[in-house]
């Protein structure tokens, strides 16, 4: 039986299609699930958005719940200045949510359990948000690194700490998602191993497995939510400099 980390292995499904700066790019299982998440969510949401009925059906209601959910999140956490970024935040949530949940399906692969993906996302958001803040506020943006009303002599200590704290954002953002997804899947895999190994006595771990799977589904949704809302909060910090 494969080890609990085996499920995270990325393998090529096709031969490399082309190279980008010496790096061969092939279609991988990760790529299939990324594109699959995009395809499934787009089909679902397009179906939901398509009719635009006054009294929504199920799919439309689902699409509208997503819309209102993220719309409220952006409005509550960023304010009216965040409207511009709503499509991005919405896509971010849908992408992470479907990535997380698809990975829980049997034979699924969770691309959000890879630090390369989560860190690239977090770092891009971080960079973009920082640039937005710099463009909007110029040098005043750096007031973010010194708390209001703190005594001036604490600046030499506080500013580096705040700077490190600020720079730790993409790390915490990406590591949180990556670690949650990885730990959950490892746990499930180990428990599944118990079920198989114990045979008839595997009923108890099986029950636990079912419970953990339910919990993992919750975590998958919750982590997508947290990833998105923290992006909103960072965006709000950059736009409004608290």
């Amino acid at each position: 039986m494969a080890g609990p980390l085996e499920q995270f292995t990325i393998h090529n499904v096709t031969d490399p299609l082309f190279t980008i700066g010496n790096h061969p790019i092939a279609v991988t299982n990760s790529a299939i699930f990324m594109l699959g998440a995009v395809a499934i969510s787009s089909v679902l949401l397009l179906a939901g958005a398509g009719k635009g009925a006054m009294i929504p059906g199920r799919v439309q209601a689902l699409a509208e719940i997503f819309y209102e959910f993220i719309g409220n999140m952006v409005r509550d956490n960023v304010g009216s200045a965040g409207r511009k970024y709503f499509p991005f935040i919405f896509s971010l949530f849908i992408f992470t949510l479907f990535g997380n949940v698809l990975g829980l399906m049997p034979y699924g692969f969770t691309f959000t359990s890879h630090i390369a993906v989560t860190f690239f996302m977090a770092a891009s958001i971080f960079l973009a948000v920082t640039l937005i803040g710099l463009f909007k506020h110029g040098l005043r943006f750096f007031s973010l690194f010194f708390p209001h009303g703190a005594p001036l002599f604490t600046a030499p200590i506080l500013i580096p700490i705040e700077l490190v704290s600020y720079l730790s954002r993409p790390i915490s953002l990406s590591v949180r998602l990556f670690a949650n997804m990885t730990v959950g899947h490892v746990l499930l895999k180990v428990l599944a191993g118990f079920v198989v190994a114990l045979g008839i006595f595997g009923a108890v771990p099986l029950a636990v497995l079912v419970a953990i799977t339910a919990l993992e589904l919750l975590v998958a949704v919750l982590q997508a939510y947290i990833f998105t809302i923290l992006s909103c909060i960072y965006l709000n910090d950059a736009l409004h400099l608290h």
């Binding site: 209601a61 509208e64 719940i65 209102e68 959910f69 409220n72 999140m73 409005r75 509550d76 730790s168 954002r169 790390i171 915490s172 590591v175 949180r176 670690a179 949650n180 919990l215 919750l218 975590v219 949704v221 919750l222 982590q223 939510y225 947290i226 809302i229």
Partner: peptide
């Protein structure tokens, strides 16, 4: 239909999320 309160996940999951956040923040 609104989820602005963030109460989409149940209490247990949320507590777990907070614990995880704190752990991750420390490491990060």
């Amino acid at each position: 239909p609104s989820g602005s309160t963030g109460g989409s996940a149940g209490g247990g999951g949320e507590k777990l999320g907070v614990g995880m956040r704190i752990a991750v923040e420390m490491v990060a």
